[in-house]
Design a binder for these strands. Sequence first.
DNA 1: AGGTGCATTCCGAATACCGGAAGGCTAATA
DNA 2: TATTAGCCTTCCGGTATTCGGAATGCACCT
Lengths: 256, 256
Amino acid sequence: MADQHATNRSVTARALAVLETFDMKHRRQSLAAIARRSNLPLTTVHRLVHELEKNDALARGSDGDYEIGSKMWRIGLLASVHADLREVALPYMEDVYELSNDAVQIAVVDGLRCLVVERIAGSRTMSVMSKPGSRLPLHATGVGKVLMAFGPPELQDAVLNSLDRYTDTTITDATKLRSQLLTIKAHGFAKTNEELAAGATSIAVPLWGKGGKGGKVIAALGIVAPSDDVRDISRMLPVLQVTASALSKKLAESGY
Amino acid sequence: MADQHATNRSVTARALAVLETFDMKHRRQSLAAIARRSNLPLTTVHRLVHELEKNDALARGSDGDYEIGSKMWRIGLLASVHADLREVALPYMEDVYELSNDAVQIAVVDGLRCLVVERIAGSRTMSVMSKPGSRLPLHATGVGKVLMAFGPPELQDAVLNSLDRYTDTTITDATKLRSQLLTIKAHGFAKTNEELAAGATSIAVPLWGKGGKGGKVIAALGIVAPSDDVRDISRMLPVLQVTASALSKKLAESGY
DNA sequence: AGGTGCATTCCGAATACCGGAAGGCTAATA
DNA sequence: TATTAGCCTTCCGGTATTCGGAATGCACCT
């Protein structure tokens, strides 16, 4: 199984595969590294990478390594998550941060993961895990569980089908999680306790698009706090709910 | 002349051409619109767009229109302008903003234009022209003139070769601009007065990478203010210079 | 009912892409 | 200095992939 790569992939798909070998941990890569990570023959990558470089999609550092070019950046800014969601949500997130002083984040569903669209936090806060652009597991984060709970059944089934473990409190039992999702949907918020990383709790609520609570959940808003904090993270629930309600309206206005 | 398009372009180039038809004014486009704007046959675009959609590079709205997908956004965040420059510069820019209350921006050279990497400004400030990701002319902006003045001669020649006019004070005389560039290089800063848009002045200074003032200029930091402001924009020069110096060191540290 | 604009499917022909093989380069090894 | 082990690059013949015109089906005007 596992995508026998190479053949049977269009040029476009291969080119994208090349671009996808880049991530936060691999911002600069040698030609050979790209070839390895993309499962493509070296010569093929060589050709593709040159083509991409010629078109400013990749840039080449002085040491010969490749990196994502500025054209990719410019194009990426036009994505809806950025231009529509992030742009509108940021001021609201700042309001929440003022009150909580814990990391505030907003996320959407992306495939079977949860894509962090924006995150604000004090300089010292928590893991590097959830930078904007990170893709976290749906079942082990507050925002993720909200997105699952309010998402389509197909999504739930697919995710429930393979629940990776990250800590010893990660919920990996499908039945248990499924019932938790029902509770979340009923109560309108989700909590996690050290399910992704030790020492971190989180709480999250849904953001609704056009049609308000009758419509669809388009994103989730949540905060992450150290689990040894004497203040209970639940105290922030009302703030999150009020903010989510205001933000939802705003998002609906701007066409979401 | 003028790229007879179509033939003689690789698949990769065509795919990128498709992506490039998107910009701030065209965030969502129909298939036909993409075809028109990319100068590619409709069927060809149809195929490419499908391929891109299948790979999450494009997404399709409910109305059938296409938009840039989240994958593009994620990849774009890895670009050096974003992850290295913007990330480091932002706090410094905020300091400047505190003091000036005018739009603060940072830009790099991108081809024959000047790419706005980040900009902070009060909600009411100036043109929409310079959002992050915008590509402004080099010869009619403060940051642009700095980048030209300290840039390689080839860049200067190329730009001086066609100086578009935007206002009646835009400098379109190559000789005049060339001498101004010398002054800028000597004094270490550039000013503009309504050269890109009526009612706006600007002032800008260079940011140096590794090697300090002996090294290369990697970006420019500037502020834009209404030209009818009673306070002279030049009062901010010292602040810009001090900030630029501190920021340059920081950039050098983080490998720039 | 005819016209315009858009999206989609089909298919034969052409060509742009594939990727193995071979050579050149710079370090590290012996 | 010879030897290995990386990496990057160029070459080239064969074929799989892409190309795009033509034709169809919409939905919306007039």
